[in-house]
Amino acid sequence: MQFGIFTVGDVTPDPTTGRTPTERERIKAMVAIALKAEEIGLDVFATGEHHNPPFVPSSPTTMLGYVAARTERLILSTSTTLITTNDPVKIAEDFAMLQHLADGRVDLMLGRGNTPPVYPWFGQDIRQGIPLAVENYALLHELWRSDVVDWQGRFRTPLEGFTSTPRPLDGVPPFVWHGSIRSPQIAEQAAFYGDGFFHNHIFWPPEHTERMVSLYRERFAHHGHGEPHQAIVGLGGQVFMRRNSQDAVREFRPYFDHAPVYGGGPSLEDFSEQTPLTVGSPQQVIDRTLSFRDYVGDYQRQLFLVDHAGLPLATVLEQLDLLGEILPVLRKEFDARRAPGVPDAPTHESLRAAATDS
């Protein structure tokens, strides 16, 4: 089981002080959070991709390349890479380059994003979102596996005798997670290729997450990649911890009430009951996180969102220290409950070994 954190890179005022960090401060904070993630023993750091205020991570591979140079063990990923508005050729080249620089500690999550204006900014039509995701990934998949590509599609100019450089490290492309909240077509896409499926899991009730993951597992088996329990699943989640649950609720409430993604909606208590958001003691976070397995089955990657809504860096680092304290318990309990035959999350080393054996 891999554990990690993901950031959306929002620049949000702190509702308790009224102060808004500068873009530079937020970018540097994201790096500090990534370094802290390795320090406390997490496996994965993932950054989102956004091209509009109030977000700053417009160039994920730049961020991850910098983090790669300052870490030794951390897997570097995205949450997400926009497969609809990025050129698949550029994705292929950027992430292969990052693979080499990071000695293979790289995978990526592909998604359509949640900002409609991004489509025309990059010359695309949001009404073609699903067809773009399907076609662009088909090209990306081929670019990483064929040294010379001849290709023609609907949404970009044809390629003739094209070679993407550098080639993937050791001839092994980065592992791909397909991220989706509500699109069965993306679950189908992940299943068709035998890739991973990541459910954001943040704003939705367990019943919805269960349906999406079940669909992916069924289609994974249908396409001949293994049994349903062998499909590769990842989940998101949100936590805020203090030693005492009442302190956690009291401290987090103003951030919840004023955050752009929450404000004006359900109360903190209602939202916590209806979604995986967990605000409370470390033991409550352990219990809630372990419960995810009850409705999605055994899964391979759990990422937590801890640095949004204007929370200051010092508070986020305190959250990571608490997460580091409960990490051994989460690892032990998930391992003890895992059914026989459930695979580990793919890594560059495991994919390279599988390629050598085949």
Rank of each mutant, 00 (worst) to 15 (best):
R331K: 09
E210A: 14
R73E: 01
L159G: 02
P21L: 11
L143A: 07
N52T: 09
A138Y: 10
P117D: 05
D10P: 00
L277K: 13
P282W: 11
H199P: 04
G236H: 04
E349G: 12
F292T: 12
D10A: 04
R19D: 14
Q246N: 13
E273T: 05
Y255Q: 08
H100R: 08
M97G: 14
L311F: 07
T16P: 11
R154Q: 14
I202E: 08
R331L: 07
V249Y: 10
A345M: 09
M241E: 01
E39W: 00
D14G: 05
Q189L: 14
D247M: 09
R182L: 06
P21G: 14
P312H: 03
R145L: 11
H223S: 02
S79V: 12
L132F: 04
G324H: 04
E227A: 12
E210I: 06
E39P: 00
S214I: 03
P205R: 12
R70K: 14
E142K: 15
Q300N: 09
D147A: 10
D247H: 12
G237S: 04
A345W: 09
S77I: 05
F192N: 01
P282V: 11
R182V: 04
G104M: 06
A190W: 01
Q319L: 13
A190F: 00
A138L: 05
F122N: 14
I130R: 11
R127D: 12
E25N: 11
R337F: 06
H225T: 09
D321K: 10
W144H: 09
G123Y: 10
V172Q: 00
D335N: 05
P328K: 07
R211P: 04
L327V: 02
F122M: 14
T165S: 13
D294L: 00
E318V: 06
N244S: 05
F198D: 00
R250P: 02
D270Y: 08
D287A: 15
L108Q: 08
V44Q: 07
T20I: 03
Q152I: 01
T347S: 03
I181Y: 04
R154M: 05
T165N: 06
A339C: 01
G341L: 00
L317H: 15
S58C: 07
T157N: 09
Q302T: 01
K36Q: 15
F240E: 08
S281F: 03
L64I: 02
Y262G: 01
G161T: 06
V342F: 03
V261Y: 02
R288M: 02
Q284R: 11
Q300W: 02
I75D: 12
A259S: 11
V11W: 01
E38Y: 04
I181K: 06
Q283P: 05
R24T: 08
P276K: 03
Q283W: 14
A345Y: 11
P340D: 09
G41S: 12
I130C: 04
V149G: 07
I232T: 14
G113V: 13
D270H: 12
P168L: 08
P206A: 07
R293C: 00
Q152P: 01
L277N: 12
P343E: 04
